[in-house]
Design a protein around this nucleic acid. Structure first.
Ligand SMILES: NC(=O)c1ccc[n+]([C@@H]2O[C@H](COP(=O)([O-])OP(=O)(O)OC[C@H]3O[C@@H](n4cnc5c(N)ncnc54)[C@H](O)[C@@H]3O)[C@@H](O)[C@H]2O)c1
Ligand SMILES: NC(=O)c1ccc[n+]([C@@H]2O[C@H](COP(=O)([O-])OP(=O)(O)OC[C@H]3O[C@@H](n4cnc5c(N)ncnc54)[C@H](O)[C@@H]3O)[C@@H](O)[C@H]2O)c1
Lengths: 205, 205
DNA sequence: ATCATATTGTGTTTATTTGCACTAAAAGGG
DNA sequence: CCCTTTTAGTGCAAATAAACACAATATGAT
């Protein structure tokens, strides 16, 4: 458990999402077989992954879904809600701020920033857009560990450096470029075009 | 070249993106070393990946960036622009439709669909929102191969089945759940919460 | 109580992926 | 022209990941 491979960790949120969906559909137990079919991963793989963290199932009967969900929430450290800041209040930043799907999965946007004087001070959904100049200071003060980055590619590295200076350790990057960060900072990339290009390879022209 | 591992293909768009960014910054040659530093992948890995498709560099001098970009565009089949349909014109669908970053990377939204009678027929950016009832027929007729899915989780599988029926072979899914599709159909997932949860694991509470 | 069935957790094997290290080639300087 | 430096492409080894297969155990039916 001290040294779980990244690739195992990366699958856990997918299991969690599928399990939470099962609960919505009124199910209370499942098996590695059934879960595997839902998420497109082999049953053996799922059992191996989970075995990295303990024993959560029962032979013959499978897994109790609420218990497994709870265990995964603990493992992923999302049983409490993390404070997150959002930088870049353009088209995408607005959509993200209005999205209701974060908080019930462990994340709460607590502040949003922009550099455009016309936007700073305006209000959206109870949020006042703050000046990015205050980002480092604010993040340090509130001990913010996570951020979502929605600025144009041209300023993404600059803002990333500010986030790192402010003590942020995890960045969800929507800008279409690779970021340079210290090894202790994690980045996850959201670039729909990368997804489309990965699939285009397999199409016939 | 007939059987390149998925994982290799999945890295190519990342290389491409970094190379295109280098061009913007006025560079015309690079090395596996330099590219590797930009994207956080070892130089050896990059050389191995590219060697799956041919020889693109020159010993001693590295890679000519425009040539390598062109080669990657060919390999990924994005040197032409693919027609894509968008289903689900809510908050996110609107933001995606207005986003200008698709077409210069190989993808063009040609139609958008919704099921809400209040939305069908309304106009956004020269697009008329079409009735999802026509999706299968339209997709077949226009031989659409790619789609972006922005409907709520509760209707995502239903719409997916329509897309498959319409002949779509690649789906970019924004709904927070795993989709069931035939083996010949590819899906890429965009779920920001999954990204955040993957990082939360590494944070200290 | 016994048996058939289901299903976990895991040791072992197999497959895949990455990294290493070297050869070959290209460029530039003196 | 020769030497030094740089760097691609690649065979091989090491590391990592996935699949297999089975003992152990739980359930329910007869
Ligand atoms: N809109 C989409 O659907 C979409 C989809 C995929 C990716 N993206 C990417 O997300 C990012 C944002 O996209 P968008 O459409 O919202 O762009 P946008 O231009 O509408 O918004 C960018 C915002 O960032 C602000 N900004 C610029 N520099 C800043 C800085 N240094 N500090 C703080 N704020 C700064 C701008 O003032 C603006 O409000 C881009 O990188 C884009 O490529 C957007
Ligand atoms: N808004 C965001 O920033 C964001 C972020 C991440 C993920 N998502 C996900 O993206 C999806 C869309 O999000 P949203 O905020 O735009 O939701 P939304 O409710 O605003 O929009 C959903 C749209 O889909 C349409 N729809 C419903 N059923 C349909 C059907 N069968 N056929 C065609 N259209 C149908 C609805 O009429 C509506 O217009 C959701 O699954 C959401 O979880 C959204």
């Amino acid at each position: 458990m001290t040294d779980v491979p990244d690739i195992v960790v990366s699958r856990l949120p997918v299991y969690l999402r599928a399990l939470q969906y099962m609960v919505i559909n009124g199910k209370s137990t499942t098996s590695s077989q059934e879960l595997g079919e839902k998420v497109g991963i082999s049953a053996a793989q799922i059992r191996k992954d989970l075995s990295q963290f303990g024993e959560f199932g029962k032979q013959g009967t499978g897994y109790n879904i609420p218990f497994l969900i709870d265990s995964l929430l603990q493992i992923l450290k999302v049983e409490k809600v993390w404070d997150v800041v959002l930088v870049g209040m353009g088209e995408l930043g607005h959509a993200i701020l209005r999205y209701q799907g974060f908080v019930n999965r462990g994340f709460n946007i607590v502040a949003c920033y922009d550099s455009d004087p016309l936007k700073i001070g305006t209000k959206i959904n109870n949020y006042s857009i703050l000046d990015v100049k205050d980002l480092v200071k604010d993040a340090k003060k509130a001990e913010i560990k996570m951020a979502m980055l929605c600025v144009p590619a041209s300023s993404a590295q600059k803002v990333t450096d500010l986030l790192v200076e402010g003590g942020v350790l995890a960045i969800l990057n929507y800008a279409p470029l690779s970021l340079a960060v210290p090894t202790y900072v994690r980045v996850q990339y959201i670039d729909p075009v990368i997804g489309l290009q990965r699939m285009a390879y397999y199409l016939n022209k």
